[in-house]
Design a protein around this nucleic acid. Structure first.
Lengths: 175, 175
DNA sequence: CAGTTGTTTCACAAATTTGTGAAGCTAAGG
DNA sequence: CCTTAGCTTCACAAATTTGTGAAACAACTG
């Protein structure tokens, strides 16, 4: 049940002290809770947090399973989701069936891009609502303003992204 | 798809003709789905959407119940949540036990303010993560960047909000 | 102060979601 | 080829969430 093997790690392996301390686990759970509350699936949030806090750049399915105490099946589902929304990338060393997961490099770029998509859909839906009630009516005006705001927000978010990129790695090529 | 009844509604009685058309219901469900997908509780999203699309400025619990085909209990829960996050305000005409719900006027201001709170908590959590692993380590740097981004985003969001207010009702006092 | 109407709370049933073990699939290594 | 390691899919059990009816509660009205 409880794995006490943390101390029995081989010295000739990676002598990285504790690769996954209780404090790290605490952070993972706390951050995952934050994300979950904001709508992300629980397991996906935990995997994401675990990758974020790990000293290693990449983790394998097995490592995640051990650190988070969950089954490979759960990892599989979480990673599929995270890859879909472009938060992690999966990579495989040539000639190995072991997959390793890495936080997408342009993490925040991707996060914003995703949000952009969501805002787009909201805007579309809102515009369709305006058509339903007519743009002269009170409800129509209310929803027009909402749509306008969403469009405004979308533009501004893109600008923000540009500013961030300029500030931090303005020299990095877009791909 | 135009609603012909808009013209045939009489202004002086309460025709209850079609205050809530199938098209409106369709919009409500679609918009609610968008919001739900983004993490909002289902009933709260439906109530919110219903208020958004309604010609009336306010709706009573009974009206919401009828339009959305849900029990008063469900309304109660949804409205409590919406009020908590400052998306709707509840008002009661003096000398009536009938409560009426209204979209909060500074709807988008509130929405942003809420987001700001969330970003704050994320930032705090992220900073605590940096402390766990040390800010010199790879993970520490990774999370520092995340925290920095979140703080940057928070500032920018506030600026965006100011711009929106300046653009649309720059004269309105901050309440 | 009793009657009535509208809202909220509560316990529960239904439905959905979540995570698992086990089987299945794919590809590397003999 | 055949074996084996690793990921994924699937069916199911557990847990959580959701919405309801009923009862409790609150407040206007006569």
């Amino acid at each position: 049940m409880i794995d006490h093997n943390l101390m029995s790690r081989r010295a000739d392996d990676q002598p990285l002290g504790e690769p996954y301390t209780p404090d790290m686990a605490a952070f993972v759970e706390r951050f995952a809770a934050d994300m979950t509350e904001a709508g992300m699936q629980r397991m996906a949030a935990r995997v994401f947090a675990c990758l974020l806090v790990s000293q290693e750049e990449t983790l394998s399915s097995a490592e995640l399973a051990e650190r988070l105490q969950i089954s490979p099946a759960a990892i599989s589902g979480a990673v599929r989701y995270l890859a879909q929304v472009h938060l992690v990338s999966r990579e495989r060393q040539p000639g190995s069936r072991r997959e390793r997961y890495r936080l997408h490099h342009d993490l925040w770029y991707e996060a914003m891009a995703n949000r952009d998509t969501i805002l787009s859909r909201w805007t579309t839906t809102m515009r369709s609502g305006v058509e339903v009630v007519g743009d002269g009516s009170p409800a129509g005006r209310r929803m027009s303003e909402a749509a306008e705001f969403l469009e405004f927000l979308q533009r501004e978010m893109n600008d923000i992204l540009d500013r961030w990129r300029a500030r931090h790695h303005g020299d990095r090529p877009p791909a």
